[in-house]
């Protein structure tokens, strides 16, 4: 046992039947509740009911699910971080996912394609910047139509334009966060390549400028 009353070897304690295992499981559950509560509390503003009681219910359910997930993988712990840090991430992931699910449970998720009539949205003060932003928005819309598949466009619009949480969209589409992120990554690579070929980015690997600055390499635009 450590000074904090934790097992010196968590994996052994959790894997060896006996009183030590029971105690380790109890301590682990406390850790999971702590981390889940921390996460739900951070995100409570998006909950339809953010009362302490509602937060506690979500945190406890997330802690239970996270503990099950952790115990299924406990043999994979390699000791590259503290065990408690490793354990916390399971609870944080589960709690964050649960909060997003509750946040969207009564909201419909609609996948839509880019509307041909979508006007570029600009908000720049000077006419020059406004023209640049409008030109870039048209170029991005054009690239989305020519370089992306309909599925890629719908996923990109849902996640990056409409700000639907990735876990929520994955749940509604019956897929995973990882699969959707791969789609988004491919979208970004295709758009950057397309825009670079048309002179809107210095090259496909160029770092994007801060959002309040134009990223055009050719402000006049290349049709």
């Amino acid at each position: 046992m450590t000074e904090r009353g934790e097992p010196a070897d968590w994996v052994e304690a959790l894997s060896t039947p006996g009183p030590g295992q029971v105690q380790a499981l109890h301590l682990l559950h406390q850790l999971m509740v702590r981390a889940a509560a921390h996460q739900v509390w951070r995100m409570r503003a998006v909950l339809p009911n953010s009362s302490p009681g509602a937060v506690e219910v979500i945190a406890n359910q997330a802690a239970d699910e996270a503990m099950t997930a952790l115990l299924a993988k406990v043999h994979t712990f390699e000791g590259r971080s503290r065990f408690t840090t490793w354990a916390y991430k399971f609870a944080i992931l589960q709690a964050a996912t649960d909060v997003r699910r509750v946040q969207w449970q009564h909201r419909e998720v609609e996948l839509h394609d880019l509307e041909l009539s979508d006007p570029p949205t600009v908000g720049h003060d000077s006419p020059e910047h406004q023209a640049e932003a409008s030109d870039l928005a048209r170029a991005v819309a054009r690239a989305m139509r020519t370089a992306l598949t309909p599925h890629q466009r719908r996923v990109a619009l849902a996640l990056l334009v409409d700000d639907i949480p990735i876990d929520v969209l994955a749940d509604r589409l019956g897929t995973s966060r990882g699969a959707l992120y791969k789609t988004v990554h491919d979208v970004r690579v295709r758009l950057r390549t397309e825009l670079a070929s048309r002179g809107y980015l210095l090259d496909a690997t160029a770092t994007v400028a801060p959002k309040d600055q134009p990223i055009l390499s050719n402000p006049a635009g290349t049709p």
Partner: peptide, 26 residues
């Protein structure tokens, strides 16, 4: 069920464009 919030839905705002062309390599 309530619909997806309609405000700004589908609009290519500068922020959205920044997200769309973000470099996520490697």
């Amino acid at each position: 069920m309530n619909p997806t919030p309609p405000s700004e839905s589908g609009s290519l705002t500068p922020a959205a464009i920044g997200e769309l062309v973000l470099d996520t390599t490697p």
